[in-house]
Write a protein that binds this DNA or RNA. Structure first.
Length: 302
DNA sequence: AAGACGAAAGTGGTTGA
DNA sequence: TCAACAACTTTCGTCTT
């Protein structure tokens, strides 16, 4: 709280909760008005009272097919429906049936898709916000009818791939394909399709986004990691990055950085975690040290 | 013996007619 | 729809440490 009155320098204030105003106690200047009262206006002495007085429920989430909320008319078995007159009961049955049919059409699909999402993303160890984004994208895809003629898994995988990129924690198509049972080719195709249809614009991934993950998998020190990022930044300004596969460039940068900091990893090891071949690393890192004038430094380190 | 190197042929995907 | 094309992979023989 920035709690000095700009007018008189006083630090005492009066809060007028009825008007929602914050007033300086000394000079009477109104510092804030129309504040939102976020406090409860009621008290509850036990759980039952709280249940009754609470006017909010749980958080909305896109990872549940019903966003965490759902209604059904007349639960299973013997319920209140049986207290109705027979004539009314019939119409409630119709209502119940209609309700469940409408909801199941897209919801059954969603429910299945979201369980699939859960499976893949926990296999890949992805955080919750990414799941939320994925679920949101998938939802949009369903309502736009983009799932038709495509396997549901492929759309989930594609949405997940997009969500990862959006959050700058890219996974490679290979990784996504491995976690789901969708072929890489299919994921890529569906990804391109849905991003186009939904108008999602994503910048090409930067190799830098891969550094921390690869580096930690190789158990490299933060220092080396930073070095790799630094190399990449310089490389970007020399246009050594565009057009190349970002994973290859990232792998090369890590290889160079690790040699320079005496934490040398073999090309083989780096290639393994980055999912590229040694040959690619060689090609990339040759370019890097050449263009950045690091040949001598590199030669010293070897 | 392991790692690095580079040539050569093959693969999947993009681009432009 | 097709061919040309660049990036990347696979494979393999050779060199270096």
């Amino acid at each position: 709280m920035a709690d000095v009155c700009p007018e008189c320098g006083s630090t005492k204030f009066i809060y007028d909760s009825k008007r929602g105003e914050k007033i300086c106690a000394k000079c009477g200047l109104v510092l804030e008005e129309r504040q939102i009262d976020t406090t409860q206006e009621w008290r509850a002495f036990d759980y039952e009272q709280k249940q009754k007085r609470d006017r909010t429920g749980s958080f909305l989430t896109y990872t549940r097919h019903d966003k965490g909320l759902s209604t059904s008319i007349g639960d299973h078995g013997y319920t209140d429906l049986y207290k109705l007159k027979p004539s009314q009961r019939a119409s409630f049955y119709r209502l119940k049936r209609w309700h469940s049919q409408v909801s199941t059409a897209t919801e059954r699909n969603l429910r299945y898709a979201l369980s699939e999402l859960d499976r893949i993303s926990s296999a890949l160890g992805l955080p919750k916000n990414i799941r939320e984004t994925t679920a949101l994208i998938y939802r949009k895809a369903v309502t736009k009818g983009l799932v038709r003629g495509r396997s549901m898994e492929s759309v989930v995988a594609a949405a997940l791939y997009a969500a990862c990129r959006k959050h700058n924690v890219p996974r490679t198509l290979d990784e996504i394909a491995e976690g789901s049972n969708v072929k890489k080719r299919e994921v890529g195709r569906t990804y391109r399709f849905i991003t186009r249809e939904l108008g999602i614009k994503l910048l090409p991934t930067s190799p830098i986004d891969y550094i921390s993950r690869f580096a930690s998998e190789l158990k490299l020190s933060p220092k080396t990691q930073q070095k790799a990022v630094e190399i990449l930044k310089r490389a970007q300004s020399k246009d050594l990055v565009s057009g190349r596969g970002p994973t290859g460039v990232a792998a090369a940068a890590i290889y160079v950085a690790s040699t320079l900091t005496n934490e040398k990893k073999t090309q083989r090891e780096v290639a393994e975690v980055a999912g590229v071949t040694e040959v690619t690393i060689r090609n990339r890192y040759k370019e890097l040290i050449e263009q950045l004038g690091m040949e001598d430094k590199m030669a010293d380190a070897l």
